[in-house]
Structure formats: structure tokens, C-alpha cells
Amino acid sequence: MTKQLKLSALVAALLVSASAFAAKPGYAVDQSTDAVTRNSYGECWKTTYFDKAKDGLVECGDREAAKPAPVVEAPKTVLVAQKEKVTLSAKVLFDFNKTVLRPDAKNELDPLVAKLKAHAGQGHLNGVEIDGYTDFLGSDKLNNALSQKRADAVKAYFVDAGVPAEKVTAVGKGKAEAKMTDECKAKFPKYVKNKKQNAEIKACIESDRRVELTIDAVKETMIEKKAN
């Protein structure tokens, strides 16, 4: 009976030892605590079967700890102020020297009306400024009045179409920014009053006859946060 008990105890001890080695292969393990045995320098005691590629433990410095997954914050929506400039040819909007909108001007203005109303409906429209410009022909007084009436005509179109009146301003700037003046004067140094040259000069400075819009609105923008 005594011999049988001793044999059972030995088997049990071997099973505990084997279990410890299985849990931490390649290292000598204290059977009573299941902790890796260390030498006098605090280093983990490895067995002759140690294989760092398979058996390394983080606690022994033989393997790097798993890095935590990066934390990615959800995208954030912010409102960003933006100013958009739109240039419309006066040739498309008005007949020469006139201030009444042409019937086909709606093809240029209606898409802008839709955009402005959409901004206003979302509460994102700060305002829109309509600036009228002329070429250099004629007096300052004439051009200032002409450019103001043209800007007013575009404003009236927007307001009648449902754009909030308090968001729209119209300014006549006359020939203050007639950019083609010098180039066209150089091209026609001698002004001759005839239909052909009049038409050529008008064509040369056509781009100066324009209406410019500055749309001041805010836009929703998604900001992606970087992973930490």
C-alpha cells in the first residue's frame, strides 16, 4: 500500500510539472506557484528546449507585448465659411447699353437661384453681393448708373425667385475694373467712327461688360481624425 501511494504521488508531481511546462514551454517553472524560475540576476531560467521563435514570454523580455489597436475617432462635421465667385457676361444677360434682362438670361440665373435658395434654406447663406461692371466707353456717370441698374436687375430676379432680400446686395462699379482698356486701345490707336470699327472695339472689350457674384456661404465638411 505504501509503495502504491508513493507511486501515485510521483505521478501526480510529474503531471503538475508537465502542466507547468506546457503552459510556459522552454522555461523552468516553480511547481508551487506556476511562475517562471529566475536566477540571481532576475533573469528567466530557460531549458535546453527553449525556442525564442515559439516559446518567448513577454514577462521575460523574449517577446514584445501586443500593441493595442489604434483608436480612430469618428469623422466630425464642421461648418467652413466659403466665398464663391461667379462671373456672368453682360452680353448674355443684357442687350448692349440696356438694363432689362434678356429672356434667355434665365438660363444663367436659374441655377444660381437654386443654389442660393438651397444655402438659405439650410441657414448657410451669409449673403451674396452682385457687382455690375462696364467697359471704358462713355462717361463715368453713365457707366456708374448703367452698372448699378444691371446689378439691381439681377438682384430683383433673385428676390422675385425666392432668395431672401436681406441676403442680397447690388453694387454698380462702372468702369473701375475695365481690364481690357489698355489692350484694346493699343489695338485701335485711332478711333474711327464707323460701324465696323465700333463692332470690333465692342467685341474687344466685351469681357469688361459683366456681372460678378460673390456668394458667401458656409459648407458642411467632414474632418477625418487620425488614429492615435
Rank of each mutant, 00 (worst) to 15 (best):
Q4Y: 13
L7S: 14
L15W: 15
S19F: 15
S19P: 04
R38E: 01
K46L: 09
D51W: 10
K54W: 09
D55M: 03
C60Q: 03
G61C: 07
R63Q: 05
A66Y: 06
A69H: 04
A74W: 05
T77R: 11
V78E: 07
Q82W: 06
K91T: 11
K91G: 13
T99Y: 04
V100F: 09
V100C: 09
D104F: 08
K106C: 06
K106Y: 07
E108N: 08
P111V: 10
P111E: 11
K115L: 04
K117F: 06
A118F: 09
A120M: 05
A120L: 07
G123L: 05
N126K: 11
Y133I: 00
F136A: 10
S139K: 08
K141N: 14
L142W: 10
L142Q: 13
S147M: 03
S147F: 02
K155A: 04
P164M: 09
P164K: 05
K167I: 03
T169S: 13
A178H: 03
K179P: 02
C184H: 04
K185Y: 09
K187M: 12
F188C: 08
P189F: 06
K196C: 08
K202A: 11
C204N: 06
D216S: 01
D216V: 01
K219S: 12
M222D: 10
